[in-house]
Amino acid sequence: MDQIIDFFKHILNPEWIIANGGYYLILAIIFAETGLFIGFFLPGDSLLFVAGIYAELLAESFFNMPLVVMMTLIAIMGVLGNIVGYWFGRKTGPILFKRKDSFLFKKKHLWQAKEVYDKYGGGAIFVARFLPIVRTFAPIIAGIVGMERKKFMFWNIVGSFTWVFSLMLAGHFLDKAFPTLKEHLEWIIVIIVVITTLPVAFKMIFGKSGIHAHFDEFGNPIETPKSEEQEEVKP
C-alpha cells in the first residue's frame, strides 16, 4: 500500500517522471490526461514545461530525436487522447451523468467542462487544452452532445499542437536564456500550477452561472433561485 501511495506522489512530480519514465512516460501521461477521465489529476502543463527544459536529455534518451519531432509526437498523443475521450463520450457518455461520485470520478467536473463547451462551442476543445481538469472532460462532453467530427478534429489538432509546442518551447528557450532555471524548478512548477488552475478555481468560486456553481450530494448542479426582479415579467 505504501508503494502505491509513493507512486502517486511521484507521478505528480514532473522531474520524477522525466528522470524515471523518460519520454515514453511523458507520451503515456499526455495521452491519459487528455482523454481518459481517470487522468484528470496528472500534471500536463508543468510536465510539458519541464520537458522543454530537459529537452536535450530527453532527446539523448530517445534516439537523439530533434526537438520538433519530439514535440510533434507528444502533440499527436494529445490528439489521440482526445479522440478516445470523444469516442468514449459518444458511446457511453450519457451514463456518466447518472453515475454516482466516487474517489476517482466527480460528476461536477463533467458539468464544469460542459459549461466551457456551451460557452465557446467548437473552440472549447482548444480553450480546454489550457485548463487543467477541464481538458480531460471536454472531449467526452463533445462526444456526449454529438459535436460534428470534422469540427472536433480541427480544434483537437490545433489545440493539441498549440498547447504542446507553446509550453515546451517556453521551457526550452527560457532554460537557454536563464541557465540556472533548473535550480528553481519547484517554484516554477508551483507557479505554473497556480496560473493554469486559477481560471478554473475562480470560475468555481466566483462564477455567475448558478447551474455549475453549486452541486448536490450526487454531483448534480443545483439551480440558483431567481431573484424577484428576474421573476418579474416585463409587459
Score class of each variant (00 low, 15 high):
Tyr24His: 11
Trp163Gln: 02
Gln3Asn: 11
Glu232Leu: 14
Ser46Val: 05
Thr34Asp: 06
Leu73Arg: 06
Trp87Ile: 14
Ile192Gly: 10
Ile76Lys: 05
Glu232Thr: 10
Pro179Thr: 06
Leu198Gly: 02
Lys107Ala: 05
Asn13Cys: 09
Thr180Ser: 15
Leu25Asp: 06
Gly171Leu: 06
Leu110Glu: 06
Thr162Asp: 00
Ile95Lys: 15
Leu27Ile: 07
Val200Glu: 08
Phe8Thr: 11
Lys203His: 13
Lys151Thr: 09
Glu115Ser: 14
Lys150Thr: 07
Val164Trp: 07
Ile11Gln: 12
Ile205Pro: 01
Gly159Cys: 02
Leu174Pro: 03
Pro94Asp: 11
Pro179His: 05
Gln230Ser: 13
Gln230Ala: 14
Met77Arg: 03
Gly159Val: 02
Thr196Gln: 11
Ile191Gly: 13
Ala124Arg: 11
Leu48Tyr: 02
Phe49Pro: 00
Leu25Pro: 02
Gly123Ile: 09
Lys203Gln: 12
Gly81Met: 05
Val69Phe: 12
Met65Pro: 03
Thr196Ala: 12
Ala19Ser: 14
Asp101Tyr: 10
Ile29Tyr: 11
Trp87Gln: 08
Gln112Pro: 00
Pro235Cys: 07
Tyr120Asn: 08
Ile125Gly: 05
Asp175Lys: 14
Asn82Tyr: 04
Ser102Pro: 06
Phe88Ile: 08
Ala19Ile: 00
Leu48His: 05
Phe126Cys: 05
Ala113His: 05
Ile189Lys: 12
Phe31Asn: 01
Lys150Asn: 13
Ala28Gly: 11
Lys107Met: 11
Leu167Glu: 06
Leu25Arg: 05
Ala170Ser: 12
Trp87Glu: 11
Glu229His: 10
Ala124Lys: 09
Ala201Glu: 08
Ile189Phe: 03
Thr72Gln: 04
Pro225His: 07
Gly21Cys: 08
Pro225Cys: 02
Glu183Ala: 09
Leu42His: 06
Thr180Asp: 15
Ile83Tyr: 14
Pro179Met: 04
Phe178Ile: 15
Leu36Thr: 02
Phe7Trp: 12
Leu198Glu: 00
Pro235Glu: 15
Leu104Lys: 13
Gly22Glu: 10
Lys9Leu: 08
Asn220Asp: 15
Val158Cys: 10
Glu228Arg: 14
Asp2Cys: 01
Arg129Leu: 01
Met153Ser: 08
Gly122Ile: 01
Tyr117Ile: 12
Phe63Thr: 05
Met168Arg: 07
Lys150Tyr: 08
Met1Pro: 05
Phe202Val: 10
Asp216Gln: 08
Glu223Asn: 06
Met147Leu: 13
Asp118Gln: 13
Ala32Lys: 03
Met168Gly: 02
Phe88Met: 14
Glu115His: 13
Ile83Gly: 04
Glu232His: 11
Lys91Pro: 02
Ile205Gly: 02
Ala28His: 06
Gly78Phe: 04
Tyr120Ile: 03
Met71Arg: 04
Thr34Met: 09
Lys182Ile: 07
Phe215Gly: 01
Glu15Gly: 03
Leu57Cys: 04
Gly81Ser: 02
Ala124Asp: 05
Asn82Asp: 11
Val50Ala: 07
